[in-house]
């Protein structure tokens, strides 16, 4: 890595993560199997749920997919490899690369989850473009928050259970907002505070990105 340009560093790291993912494909197929089996189990248990339940179940599936997908991105970095990165790159570039990679991964997973849900649980969506936009935005928000939590959990001995304990209370406001906003895609409801909720969600995303970039260098030092 001769060029020390931070943007170049970040993109090299993203490329490295994507290449690793393409070569191993273990995380991808693991999460894929996870999505399909979860949705299938729901289908076996309750058939085709009505729209409100569909919405709730979809976001819960998203939550668990995010925990699994994002946690893996830090689990695969062994201690030695982290030390190696420590000597090579700026910590902010490292976490920025992880954020970008996780957003890409989660976007893909969100679309797969959406397709699976529609295939197994029926399609109650009346406003598809809006809902797909929501799914992408939601996937991004969830993956951003869980990236930082995965970094914390990775420091605390790669404890995956810890990530769920820390993450679920923190993600609840985001999930509540998402479930409320996406309700418009199912039924024509009048939601006067819709723009405000979008603004709040966007604000939370920016807050999470800013905090992650500021706080990660402290976390990294070992």
């Amino acid at each position: 890595m001769k060029k020390s340009n931070p943007i170049h560093q970040t993109f090299t790291l993203v490329k490295k993560d994507l290449t690793l993912e393409l070569r191993q494909q273990y995380a991808f197929y693991g999460v894929l199997l996870y999505i399909v089996s979860t949705v299938f189990v729901i289908n076996l248990m309750m058939g085709r749920p009505d729209d409100k339940v569909w919405n709730a179940l979809f976001w819960v599936i998203q939550l668990f997919v995010a925990v699994n997908a994002v946690a893996k991105s830090f689990m695969q970095e062994s201690r030695g490899r982290l030390l190696y990165f420590y000597s090579l790159v700026n910590p902010r570039c490292f976490i920025a690369a992880k954020l970008i990679y996780n957003v890409i991964l989660m976007t893909l997973m969100s679309i797969i989850a959406l397709v699976c849900s529609i295939a197994f649980l029926g399609n109650p969506i009346i406003n598809p473009v809006y809902f797909v936009g929501m799914v992408l935005l939601g996937g991004t928000s969830i993956s951003l928050l869980f990236t930082m939590l995965a970094a914390i959990a990775a420091q605390a001995n790669h404890n995956a259970a810890l990530m769920a304990v820390m993450g679920f209370p923190l993600i609840m406001p985001v999930l509540m907002l998402l479930a409320n906003i996406s309700l418009s895609a199912f039924v024509t409801v009048y939601q006067p505070e819709l723009p405000k909720m979008f603004l709040l969600l966007g604000g939370m995303d920016i807050l999470v990105i800013a905090l992650t970039m500021i706080l990660f260098p402290f976390l990294w030092k070992d």
Partner: peptide, 16 residues
């Protein structure tokens, strides 16, 4: 160190 980082994160989300 780790709990200080999480604490700042938690407080920032406590306000909204």
């Amino acid at each position: 160190r780790i709990s200080a980082v999480f604490n700042i994160f938690a407080f920032a989300l406590l306000i909204p």
